[in-house]
Amino acid sequence: MTKLFITGATGYIGGDALATIYAAHPDFSYVALVRSTEKAEQVKTRFPNVRVVIGDLDNSALLERESAAADIVLHTADASDHVGAAKAIAAGLVAGHTKEKPGYWLHTGGTGILTFEDSDKGSYGNKSDKIYDDWDGVEELLNLPDHAFHRNVDKLVLDAAAKHADVLKLALVCPPTIYGRGRGPCSQRGRQVYELANVTLRLQKGPIIGSGQAIWNNVHIHDLSDVYALLVNAAVAGRDDDGIWGPKTYYLTENGEHRWGDLAKSTAEAAAKLGFIPEAKAEPIDLDSAKQYAGFESLSWGMNSRGRALRARKLLGWNPSSPSLLDELPQIVKSEWKRQQEQESDR
């Protein structure tokens, strides 16, 4: 029986990925790391066959033990930035597996790693023509500057995959802006676009950073979960095709891109059409003010993160088919309006 250990089952990415994999493989033995007994009950209610272990990402011994016992580790909980968790998972997979029975690591990064040039320049709202890819251009991804966002953890997991290639099979999944309603037991809400909708409703206008020309990739949460599911299938089948696993396996899981200024305008249009704001208006907002409303997420509205997801399409047959970001936008605005109403009623 295949054993799968997941972190982040109560989160947006992990919850939806678990829902997809659980539906396809109800016979697996599942273990989920959860931080509280309250959320553990929510996971158990949604996924009765999952064994829950209570702990957090600082519980290195627990992470090592469960990673050693698992055939597949799906790491989604703060995976791109928590150094200790990545070290513990790597150590567990190496300790618990052999060349004859390798361990598979589905690690979640993020395409924030591609924003370093904007950060370095302090440039927000300007277009970049630089487009990365995870196939012909993978060497560029492997040699990004050490100070790039998420780079420290990416290097750690890639180095582990190179050093222990026979026993640790890695796939580094890098989602961009994620949208769509999640199917997990707890968090079903994305971040960047949802905060954009939230701020649009609060300001009664779409917020534009700089000239609004910065571009970012996007993917529907269901299509992203399909990538994890396809990787799980490849692991179960023992596929070791060149390029599926290893220290060069970035998976940029995009299915299109958006210009942030245009998206701010479209969000305002959707909100006005739904009657939530008086008119479809989008105007510039300075970065400090944006951060007061949406924190760190607002920085991304002025940054570029552009890539092409070739690896998953070529090797896994990934064929994203969910509604586009623009098609989904009215539902996102509705969900944020409802969320604001609920928050108001709770005060």
Rank of each mutant, 00 (worst) to 15 (best):
16 D>E: 09
139 E>W: 06
47 F>K: 00
344 E>M: 11
329 L>D: 05
176 P>S: 13
277 I>E: 13
66 E>Q: 12
222 H>N: 12
4 L>K: 00
1 M>S: 13
251 Y>M: 08
195 E>R: 07
327 D>E: 15
162 A>I: 01
136 D>H: 11
20 T>A: 14
93 L>A: 11
96 G>L: 08
286 D>R: 07
8 G>Q: 03
225 S>D: 08
340 Q>D: 12
6 I>P: 04
94 V>I: 15
305 S>P: 10
156 L>N: 06
326 L>K: 10
191 R>W: 07
5 F>C: 09
224 L>I: 03
290 A>V: 05
260 W>R: 01
1 M>F: 07
338 K>N: 11
29 S>K: 03
38 E>N: 12
269 E>L: 13
190 G>Y: 06
161 A>I: 04
137 G>W: 00
328 E>D: 15
79 A>G: 11
85 A>F: 05
188 Q>T: 13
269 E>W: 03
245 W>F: 09
68 A>E: 03
272 A>M: 09
75 H>R: 04
84 G>W: 03
294 A>C: 08
13 I>F: 05
97 H>F: 10
144 L>T: 00
158 L>F: 15
23 A>P: 02
205 K>D: 03
76 T>R: 05
294 A>D: 03
211 S>P: 01
236 V>P: 08
39 K>N: 13
160 A>F: 05
295 G>Y: 04
155 K>T: 01
228 Y>R: 03
